[in-house]
Computed example of a mutant assay.
Amino acid sequence: MAEAAFQPGVMVSRPRPDYALLDSGHGRKLERYGDFQFIRPEPQAMWAPARDDWQAHGEFIPASDDDGGGRWHFHQPVPREGWSLTWEEVTFTAQCTPFRHLAWFPDMDPVWRWIRTQLAGKPPSDEAPQAMNLFGYTGVGTLALSAAGASLVHVDASKKSVRAARDNAELSGMSDRPIRWIIDDAAKFAAREVRRQKRYDAILLDPPKYGRGPDGEIWRLEENLAPLIESCGQLLDQDSRCLFLTVYAVRMSALSLGSLLHEKLGHLRGRIEVGELAVQEEARGLLLPTAIYARWSQGNDSA
Rank of each mutant, 00 (worst) to 15 (best):
G275E: 09
I292D: 01
A294W: 09
G270K: 01
L205F: 07
T86N: 13
G70I: 00
R116G: 14
E42N: 05
L225A: 03
P129N: 10
P129V: 04
C242H: 02
W83A: 10
L143I: 10
R241C: 08
Y33F: 15
I218R: 14
L30N: 10
G211W: 04
R269G: 15
W219E: 11
G34V: 14
D215Q: 15
Q280H: 10
M46K: 07
F60E: 05
W47P: 11
I272N: 02
S158P: 00
Q7R: 08
A164L: 10
T97K: 03
T86A: 15
D18F: 14
V247L: 05
R166L: 06
D184C: 01
E89D: 15
Y210M: 00
I183E: 14
A294N: 09
E276A: 13
K122S: 05
A148E: 12
K198Y: 06
D176E: 07
M108G: 01
W54M: 06
P207W: 07
F36G: 06
W87Y: 15
I61F: 03
Q95M: 14
D206R: 07
V78Q: 11
E217W: 10
A56R: 12
L286F: 12
R100F: 05
G121W: 03
L85D: 07
W83C: 09
M108I: 00
V279E: 12
P178W: 06
R116V: 01
S64V: 04
A303I: 11
I61S: 04
K29L: 15
E127I: 09
H26I: 13
E170Y: 00
G266F: 08
T142A: 08
G285Q: 10
S125I: 02
L261W: 07
P214S: 14
G121D: 06
S151H: 11
R51V: 11
Y210A: 00
I272S: 05
R271M: 12
M1K: 10
G149L: 09
Q7T: 09
Q298Y: 00
W72F: 06
A2Q: 04
R220F: 10
F92N: 12
L228T: 13
R212V: 01
A148H: 12
R284N: 15
Q76N: 12
G27I: 07
G25P: 11
F105I: 02
L143D: 06
W112D: 03
S240C: 02
Y210K: 00
D107P: 01
R116Y: 02
H57Q: 12
K209N: 04
T97I: 05
P106V: 12
V12G: 03
I179F: 04
S84A: 15
V153T: 13
G82K: 10
D52G: 04
S84F: 02
G173C: 03
L225R: 06
L288D: 02
V78E: 14
A63C: 05
Q76T: 12
E3M: 11
W83N: 11
F6R: 00
H154R: 03
A94F: 05
S175R: 13
V247K: 02
L30T: 08
H154W: 01
R196C: 11
D167Y: 12
A2D: 05
R51S: 15
A45V: 03
R199L: 01
F92L: 13
V279A: 10
G149I: 08
F189L: 10
